[in-house]
Amino acid sequence: MFTDLFHRILKSALVPLVLGSVGLSNAASVDDPAAMLRSSTDEVLSIAYSGHGNETLVARVRPLLEKTFAFDVVTRQAMGPGWRQFSAADQKRVTELFTELVIRTYSSRVVGTQRPKITYGAPVELAPDRREIPTRVSNSSGTEPFAVVYRLIKFPAGWRIYDVLIEGVSFVANYRAQFDEIIQNGGAPAVIRTLETKLAAPADSHS
């Protein structure tokens, strides 16, 4: 059971690849979140598997992720109710730092993973401007497939991702739980300090 959990968490290693796969929204997909997820999958998978070195991957995926994610919404959610007490300047700084953390997470996970096969489920309406799209990710190595659910929000410019759930574990809820105590003890300055320390550490640090 315990190692099973580790395996499940590991499966999430493939997910950012899938996140990246929804990068390029085009005019046809502005009103259709499912089309947005589907249409750009191959394009970004192609970038990830173009044979270029991993060291440039962060730079190459950044523009795609900035078009794909509602980073301001993601950050606000990850901070929880404490966000309201942040000053405008702190909110801006936290958004910058947290966005950087998410983008780095993405690129570190792409490294060494296999090109996955993605099966899409039907979108579920959460609210008039929000949808949930279940997917199933499998890879060619013959290990057990896993469930990834995307939550999208509609902006004037199109649909953007605001949360991803891997086997039931919400990306933003996980960070919200982590930041809760930090915000209660030290407010926005503690959050900024924590994120700056995290980003200053080497990407492969285990400490």
Binding site: V73, R76, G80, D129, F155, Y162, A173, R176, A177
Partner: peptide, 11 residues
């Protein structure tokens, strides 16, 4: 847009 999410309390 999306501001209501920030009010979800931490479980």
């Amino acid at each position: 847009v999306g501001d209501n999410f920030a009010n979800v309390p931490v479980e």
